[in-house]
Amino acid sequence: MKVVAVPVTGFAQNCRIIICEQTNKAALVDPGGDAEKLQAELAALNCELEAIYLTHGHLDHVGAAKQLADHFSVDIIGPHLDDKFWFDALPMQAQMFGFAPITPFYPTKWLNHGDTITVGELTLAVRHCPGHTPGHVVFYHQDSEQLIVGDVIFQGSVGRTDFPKGDSAQLLESIKSEILSFPDEVAILPGHGPNTTVGHERRTNPFISGRFG
């Protein structure tokens, strides 16, 4: 599985382009903004967009999803239904985060723990990891040992829980029961900042060790 990171918006959110190298089919994960930039990157990669997948409903992760879905005639899939209130509140989010006005939209399909998603011949497992938001999901590709985690965990940090329906205890439980269940060598691809690994975070992340939080 080839993964290309494209930072978007002033929040430097890592939109991920997942590419199946056997079929040249692609998916966008968390296109938070800068739709034209993402269109140009897809054209430069010469791949065919099949779907848009969302880890959670925060605007810096979903802001360009509807525009791109309409442009490419593809579905928006995910996150979990428990994040529906964030989609209802998209106009409020735009005001809160200083984005251009946006009207509510909704995924074609919500995801559940244990579902799978596909990109060409690739299959990724879906895990529900609430805490940062109640409907947050992550995507794992077993063959390449890559885990796309949105804002659950970062290099040396974890997702914020001070937004509506955030829950720090629930977030830490999600990290320990889901993220840390993977082998140490699994790559963590977060929504902000550099990539890391499960092992590195298990050993050094102060929130996991209990030093903070």
Rank of each mutant, 00 (worst) to 15 (best):
G131L: 03
T118H: 14
I117W: 10
H132A: 14
P130I: 00
C129H: 03
G135E: 01
R127N: 12
T123P: 02
P104D: 02
R127G: 02
Y106I: 05
W110E: 04
V119Y: 14
G135H: 01
L124V: 05
Y140E: 09
T123A: 07
K109F: 08
P104N: 07
V137F: 00
Y106C: 05
F139R: 06
Y106L: 09
V137Q: 03
L122T: 13
G135T: 01
L122V: 11
D115K: 03
L111C: 13
V138W: 14
F139A: 09
H132M: 05
P130C: 05
T116A: 13
H136K: 03
P134Q: 00
G131H: 03
Q142P: 12
T118A: 14
Q142T: 15
F105M: 05
E121N: 14
C129E: 08
G135S: 05
P130M: 04
F105T: 06
H136T: 04
G114F: 06
P107V: 07
H136C: 09
E121I: 02
G114Q: 11
T116E: 12
T133H: 00
P107Q: 04
G114T: 13
G114L: 04
T108K: 12
G120Q: 02
R127S: 11
D115H: 04
F105Q: 08
H136E: 15
T108S: 15
F139W: 04
P134I: 00
A125C: 15
L122E: 15
V126T: 08
T133V: 01
V138A: 13
G131W: 01
G131A: 06
E121L: 12
R127H: 09
T108F: 15
F105W: 04
P130E: 06
D115T: 10
P134M: 00
G120C: 03
E121A: 11
D115A: 04
W110V: 07
G135R: 00
G135D: 01
L111Y: 01
T123F: 02
K109P: 02
Y106M: 12
T123D: 02
H132R: 06
D115Q: 03
V119W: 08
P130T: 01
K109D: 03
G120E: 02
Q142H: 10
V138Q: 08
T108G: 14
H128E: 02
K109W: 08
E121G: 13
D115I: 06
P130N: 10
H141Y: 09
H113W: 04
E121P: 06
L111S: 09
G131P: 12
Y106R: 07
E121C: 07
H136Y: 05
K109Q: 14
P134R: 00
V138R: 09
Y140S: 12
T118M: 08
H141M: 13
D115N: 09
